[in-house]
Design a protein around this nucleic acid. Sequence first.
RNA 1: GUGAGUGUAGCUCAGUUGGUUAGAGUCCCAGAUUGUGAUUCUGGAUGUCGUCGGUUCGAGCCCGAUCACUCACCCCA
Length: 430
Amino acid sequence: MSTAKATPPQLPKGTRDFYPEDMRIQTFIFDAWKRISLRFGYEEYEGPIFEHLELFTGKSGDEIVSQLYNFEDKGGRGLALRPEMTPTLARLVIQRGNAIRKPFKWFSIPRLFRYERAQKGRLREFFQLNLDVLGTESIYAEADLITATATMLLEFGLKPTDFMIGISSRKLLAAYLQEIGTPTPDLVYPILDRRLKIGPDAFAQALLDAGLSTEQGQKLNLLMSSKSLEEVKKIVSGSDSIEAIQEMEDLFEILTAAGLSECIGLDLNIVRGLAYYTGIVFEVFNKGASMRAIAGGGRYDSLCEKLGGARVPGVGFGMGDVVLADLLRDHNLLPAQSQTLDVFVATFTGDIKKTFVIANAFRKLGFNVVHPLSAIKFGKQMELANAQGAACVVYVDGEKAAEGEFEFKDLAKGTMAVGSLQKIAEYLKK
RNA sequence: GUGAGUGUAGCUCAGUUGGUUAGAGUCCCAGAUUGUGAUUCUGGAUGUCGUCGGUUCGAGCCCGAUCACUCACCCCA
């Protein structure tokens, strides 16, 4: 036997362990996500956790490789752990093609991987709720997604004043870029996205570098600073721009009808980095000191087409578990959840075998039950019953045990009673 | 990839100008008492002081390197 001590195993960078107490929080969040998704009529789907590398590079370019976990399998195939769900969704949709009745609403809670430096709210492995409405260009698709998002945040206990859903339109930006004669629109989006971050001077310079004139830059700056659609209307004039504005007006009207006027607003600074967005884009921020984006999404009418399928318009959004959990923790909205059981089967005499048998009898009736695994003192059994959140303790060897009746105690009320297995079951079901 | 900060028990942290065998609370375990729970009392276990090297008679403390974590930048699907 070697005397050298093995190096203790270490958690990989950017990953998390989920001990039972962490898992309860995770489950609490996932349950709410699922509950609201189902309430809005979304159906759950899943895909493989790794895909062909090309599925991701095809959409975002080769530079994305440095930001994801890719590897070659034993057959020499280039694969990657999925960094996002949308390409997988597009693949699923393309494969079924016309066989899917449209429009349709799907959701998923994928585990995603990104090879990047971990920091607050960003890890290398995380989960993200994805909601997508596909097969329709109706603005009610956007409205549906945004309403579902808001409903979830409210369901978690956040107030309408705790967050802000900023709404913008890639269609409007694209139309205006064309209207003022921008030579290289694709180079301009990332600059627009960073406008507030880099400041007016750097913004102007970046636009010049992208081939725009000073006048074009000033026009763009004016548009981006607009605080209302009324202001925007005074700036734009093209028919495509007018159409984009009309679309946003409709959306605001619908969301106001949904009672969300408090937490929605125009924010043209939201551009989002992805090249595939074609219409409305939106982001949800928490209104605190940090102003972190907790969710974001937009319309991508040509994604499936670009990936080699038929044209299937769609709009989707994602909400990560890390930022959300941070946010809920800050607002003290993560309930302290402990283990819960229906029954703890105890023994006065150390008859573990009998507790085992009775525990299984209760389990057959559908209850969550444990019993001591070895002969431990009675006081310790009660302690365990409490620690494990048992609603009720059933004593297998009380005075009437010979007649098939057991004493049982309601731990919440502190009351005692005697009854048959069936009678106790009825009591528990109340 | 760049910069800053922090590393002492499972967790939260003390640890004096460098000085004997590194502490507390919590948690965990055991014992006592309880034929009917959360209490109380007693006891116990756990540390390469992140790691390696240097200075020193002597380093948890000073210096260097390294690793990890955290935060920010870059990026953000």
